[in-house]
Simulated assay, not measured.
Amino acid sequence: MPDWHPMLAAEERDPGTWTMVDPDGREYGVIEIRRLDGRIVYRVTVMGRPAGYTGTLRAKA
């Protein structure tokens, strides 16, 4: 599907937690907003495996 982009498939099911869903409805990633050492960061998990923390959503896109 050429017009589909993963960032358009983010579902905020719980406050501060975004679930990434592919065109077939399968979950492939989770982004959670967290506070770490006084900073606001995003915890990224892809395919059930931790991908790390980032200060911006663009950094892991």
Score class of each variant (00 low, 15 high):
Met1Val: 12
Pro2Phe: 05
Pro2Tyr: 07
Asp3Ala: 10
Trp4Lys: 06
Trp4Cys: 06
Trp4Thr: 09
His5Val: 13
His5Leu: 13
Pro6Ala: 06
Pro6Leu: 04
Pro6Cys: 05
Met7Arg: 13
Leu8Asp: 15
Leu8Gln: 14
Leu8Glu: 15
Ala9Leu: 07
Ala9Gln: 13
Ala9Phe: 09
Ala9Ser: 15
Ala10Glu: 11
Ala10Cys: 13
Ala10Gln: 15
Ala10Met: 15
Glu11Cys: 14
Glu11Met: 09
Glu11Tyr: 07
Glu11Asn: 13
Arg13Pro: 07
Arg13His: 08
Arg13Asp: 11
Asp14Gly: 04
Asp14Trp: 10
Asp14Thr: 14
Pro15Glu: 14
Gly16Met: 08
Gly16Ile: 10
Thr17Arg: 09
Thr17Trp: 02
Trp18Ala: 05
Thr19Leu: 10
Thr19Pro: 06
Met20Thr: 05
Val21Asn: 00
Val21Gly: 01
Asp22Ala: 03
Asp22Thr: 05
Pro23Glu: 15
Pro23Ser: 13
Pro23Ala: 11
Asp24Glu: 12
Asp24Val: 07
Gly25His: 13
Gly25Arg: 07
Glu27Asp: 11
Glu27Cys: 01
Glu27Met: 03
Glu27Pro: 08
Gly29Asp: 08
Val30Cys: 09
Ile31Gln: 03
Glu32Thr: 13
Ile33Arg: 15
Ile33Tyr: 02
Ile33Lys: 10
Ile33Thr: 15
Ile33Pro: 01
Ile33Ala: 06
Arg35Met: 10
Leu36Thr: 14
Leu36Ser: 12
Leu36Val: 15
Leu36Lys: 14
Asp37Pro: 06
Gly38Ala: 05
Gly38Met: 07
Arg39Tyr: 10
Arg39Pro: 08
Ile40Thr: 15
Ile40Asp: 14
Val41Trp: 04
Val41Thr: 12
Tyr42Lys: 02
Tyr42Asp: 02
Arg43Phe: 03
Arg43Val: 02
Arg43Tyr: 03
Val46His: 01
Met47Gln: 01
Met47Ser: 01
Gly48Ala: 03
Gly48Met: 04
Arg49Leu: 02
Pro50Ser: 08
Gly52Tyr: 04
Tyr53Ala: 05
Tyr53Gln: 03
Thr54Asn: 06
Gly55Met: 06
Gly55Phe: 11
Gly55Asn: 04
Thr56Met: 07
Thr56His: 05
Thr56Cys: 04
Leu57Gly: 08
Leu57Met: 13
Leu57Ala: 06
Leu57Asn: 03
Arg58Ile: 12
Arg58Trp: 06
Arg58Thr: 11
Arg58Asp: 13
Ala59Phe: 04
Ala59Pro: 02
Lys60Ser: 02
Ala61Asp: 09
Ala61Val: 07
